[in-house]
Design a binder for these strands. Structure first.
Lengths: 197, 197
DNA sequence: CGGCAATGCAAGTAACCACTTACATACTCA
DNA sequence: TGAGTATGTAAGTGGTTACTTGCATTGCCG
């Protein structure tokens, strides 16, 4: 692998482990199997390296939901599962970014490089359910989306920190969240199977 | 105010702003209006000071829910509001603790000094709703509680970081969350007002 | 072979870190 | 008053940080 890419990967990994201050150039260089000098010759400064590394690391594609809902329970469960796994995989890095936003505002700008936020994907999906009459229209689609996405986010962030509270399995939780979410927006399994207009 | 307490408060505040590594003894002492020497004479080491300061700072009482549910919408909205405000007030400190758990596991032990977790309070409340027949029993009380608490937690943590996503007002959000939560557990407004046995 | 760019090693710089020593000052209470 | 306690100032310890300089080594390409 290219030395440039090895440094980028090492920077993201060490940052996820130790945060900005803890991600020393010495440690990053050692992690990449490169001398510290090479790091500075390639990137000029620690700040430039970290910005490039975090931009690359947080460029995670957001799973799409189908344009035409067919099987809400299955589609939402799969989507939630993917969303959880994405967040859980980069949870250490995300926690560091969240805790350092106030000190390094430029970091979140590169972390927000995704074109659309998952909430807006789910919000759009809820609107389509409402248009088809599969969900009642008295709930705010954005609020509903934020609730499910927020619950999944919390699972990914807190689950491994307070295991005594999150005693259930994650699959059980995601399944339960999706079913409660659908009931909350008035989308019962019966109405979908009946194929209301 | 006592110098001891001033140092504890300053340590918690500076930690919330800059994290463990950023909370230098010099900065803490300056924030408390005390010389750095006094800090070391009072607490011996930075680690001892931080542990005591964070234990004191995270000792926030969890609001209780009534033993006998009377008006679920009102009771849950007030509880959610209090929960959100508590989390939002200490959000900076919480983010730092979350991001440093892996490096300083001893920190979360003092942050977990609360006797009961909010999830278990809400879980118990859902069980009482089910016992009274105000909620259906096909939902797992713990999962339902985790979903609402998780959504509130996300609002408190992320709201000020990505304002373009969280465009709605927080009161509107909490109200919507509670109503969706109640529908999710099968507790419609009608069934409560009707006073089913 | 010769030049050249990328990389490494050794060493050093100025700044900052947690923490200490030595000594002066102020306040309290017997 | 006088002894003890808490706090201050000044200075310095050894360690770590980001970053630099000088020079040797490697490998590739013509």
């Amino acid at each position: 692998m290219d030395i440039h890419e090895r440094l980028l990967g090492a920077a993201a990994q060490v940052y996820a482990e130790a945060g900005y201050r803890g991600a020393t150039t010495r440690r990053i260089a050692h992690e990449a199997g490169v001398s510290e000098i090479t790091l500075f010759r390639q990137f000029g400064s620690k700040e430039a390296l970290m910005l490039e590394a975090l931009t690359a690391a947080s460029r995670t594609a957001v799973l799409a939901l189908p344009d035409v809902p067919v099987d809400p329970v299955r589609e939402l469960t799969e989507w939630s599962r993917g969303r959880f796994e994405t967040l859980f995989r980069i949870r250490s890095l995300l926690r560091k970014v969240m805790s350092e936003v106030e000190e390094h505002p430029e970091i979140i700008d590169c972390a927000k490089s995704y074109p659309r936020h998952p909430v807006s994907f789910l919000e759009q999906y809820v609107r389509r359910l409402q248009e088809r009459g599969w969900a009642t229209v008295d709930t705010h689609p954005k609020l509903a989306a934020a609730m499910l996405v927020g619950a999944i986010f919390s699972e990914a962030m807190v689950r491994d920190m307070i295991p005594e509270v999150y005693s259930y399995e994650i699959d059980e939780a995601l399944d339960g969240y999706v079913r409660m979410f659908l009931r909350a927006i008035g989308c019962e399994a019966g109405s979908v199977e009946a194929g209301e207009p």
